[in-house]
Amino acid sequence: MTTLMIDLANARLCAAKTPEQCFDASDVERPWLSTLNPDEAVGLHFGRVNDGRGYSLACRLREKYPRIELYAIGHIHEDMLYFLRRCGFRYAHLLDRTDSVIERQASDELRDLLFPFSHEYQVSAGDERFPKEKVDATRQVMGIAA
């Protein structure tokens, strides 16, 4: 069991930590939103391969709480890191796999996984370009849809 996780924003490994607030990434009911503390880290658990709901949930949370610290946990493989980074996740726990970037501490490959493209065509919740100030100003009118 690895004790490391990926710091998606800085493309490096760091000591693994699991937030106290953890929710199912595929949950669309989300009763927990009313009691969410956005100042504390939030973990979203990906249970099924290729279920994209967690990406939209992360984007919604980042749009409502631009400074929220999101952790991706559960079934996370290396080729999800690009999508997670760009949807505003800060950290990701990877599945234990032989020769993974964590096991080999392969920093060049980690950068390639996180930044595979020299150009990105859209603004997204994990981007520097993400309009945080504008989101802050309008957060009162932006609801997380049911």
């Binding site: 994209g52 990406y55 760009r86 949807c87 065509y121 859209q122 997204s124």
Partner: peptide
Amino acid sequence: RQWSSFHPELSFLP
């Protein structure tokens, strides 16, 4: 087309 290319949120639809 450009906007949707590798869109991080919308690449694993139902």
